[in-house]
């Protein structure tokens, strides 16, 4: 299991780097899908198969499909790749890079000083459901309200004008 974890972690880091440095938008999205699959693999390895499956279904299977769909419709050509290339100069990324390194350092020190992970017990769907509709009920309700709002907005925007 540890080997699976480190393999998936390595794959996800490499794919995330490629996702950022890639100039072709569709290739970049392909790497992002690989990142999501690798993160799902990590979930499987640390004993949360339900979260892993949802990660693949929701992010890789639905949200990223819409991203790819839109990018395909935009028909981005060589100019976009050149623009992306221009944005990848050190001048652009050095500031955010330093800030991100500071954050990474604090994250690493936090992980190093944290108490060890609590076992590798498998969290199955039933436990997730009980947690969601017990202590986290308010969050579920708020999320559903937000989705309802999005649904109404999408209906309004997509409505055909009659007359």
């Amino acid at each position: 299991m540890e080997l699976t974890f480190y393999t998936c972690a390595l794959v996800s880091i490499i794919a995330a780097l490629r996702c950022v440095t890639q100039t072709n938008p569709v290739h970049s999205l392909l790497y992002l899908v690989v990142v999501l699959l690798a993160v799902a693999g990590i979930f499987f390895a640390i004993g949360a198969p339900f979260a892993g499956a949802l990660e693949v279904i929701v992010y890789a299977g639905a949200i990223m499909v819409l991203f790819v769909f839109v990018v395909m419709m935009l028909n981005l050509g060589a100019e976009t790749a050149a623009q992306e290339h221009a944005w990848l100069r050190p001048r652009t990324w050095i500031g955010p890079g330093i800030l991100a390194t500071i954050m990474l350092a604090s994250l690493v020190s936090g992980v190093l000083h944290a108490p060890g992970l609590a076992g590798t017990a498998t969290v199955d769907a039933k436990q997730v459901g009980i947690a969601l509709f017990g202590p986290y009920l308010l969050a579920v309700e708020l999320a559903s309200l937000m989705l309802l709002g999005a649904l109404v907005a999408a209906y309004h925007l997509g409505r055909e004008e009659t007359r």
């Binding site: 198969p49 949802l54 279904i57 299977g61």
Partner: peptide, 9 residues
């Protein structure tokens, strides 16, 4: 354990 979910993924 997550049988059907794996198929949907």
């Amino acid at each position: 354990n997550i049988g059907i979910l794996f198929f949907m993924a």
